[in-house]
Design a protein around this nucleic acid. Structure first.
Lengths: 131, 131
DNA sequence: ATAAATCCGAGTACAAAACTCGGCTTTATT
DNA sequence: AATAAAGCCGAGTTTTGTACTCGGATTTAT
């Protein structure tokens, strides 16, 4: 049960954007250098965040990324969901992924834990973090 | 952020032991067949649970495994800790694993989440599950 | 027209997870 | 004492996933 580097990098990048007040956009180069994240890898991460409508991009010179919503409207849970994806265990979401799935006490544990995690991550927004 | 098969198998095996009322020990063969878990792999898992004092073993004919404590004294968190190990992110536990670790807002998110997960798992015992 | 930026698809390298195998040790039973 | 049923243990192999890399195409401000 680890948080992937992808998610950790992604959260840091988005926090970086949320903290930026003066510029309207920040380039990948700037973010990757400041946060010490591989440029090429961060590009992939930002692409995923863009597809999830968390950030938006601007091409061309002086282009870059910016948040797609106000910090108060972006839950940490959204970011984790976009990058980490899926659920804690497949038997929760995928029907028939486990032969004993009905009447499985273990499953209940994972379902409740999943709910707890979701709640914890969905009650924190970027605004909460930066203030 | 997935729960490994090892942990899922392990929890199911331990629940199986907790539910067993009549026999004092259950063999690997019995558990693996009932729970449809590879015998050889389950052996490794039980070895880890034994080292963590969650189960105990009895060698020789009619040997097998049993719980090392009463179901009410075994927290789900112990089992997860034994098999899943470590923390959600290394920057929480390993000093210097991340260059920006001080003053990192992301780190706060992971620390709080870790605490939430630990609490959720430590407030449920095997007894709670089987009753 | 140029150059600065993102976009995109296809890789590669490495690590970890999941599982296997063969032989050894312990011990109840006969 | 011999046997066989169980767990113990170390060293593999296979599979999967993560973390990156690279080359070229596209967009767009100047």
């Amino acid at each position: 049960m680890k948080i992937s580097k992808k998610t950790r990098y992604g959260l840091r990048a988005v926090i970086y954007l949320a903290k930026e007040k003066t510029k309207s956009v920040c380039s990948l180069k700037e973010i990757s250098e400041d946060q010490k994240i591989s440029f090429d890898y961060l590009e992939k991460i930002m692409a995923e965040l863009r597809k999830s409508n968390i950030v938006k991009s601007h091409q061309g010179p002086n282009g870059g990324y910016s948040l797609n919503k106000k910090p108060g409207e972006i839950k940490v849970g959204e970011i984790v969901e976009a990058l980490e994806g899926g659920s804690l265990v497949d038997c929760i979401s995928e029907l028939g992924s486990c032969p004993q799935s009905e009447d499985c006490l273990a499953k209940e544990v994972w379902q409740k834990l999943q709910q707890t995690i979701n709640k914890a991550l969905d009650t924190v927004t970027l605004k909460d973090l930066i203030s």
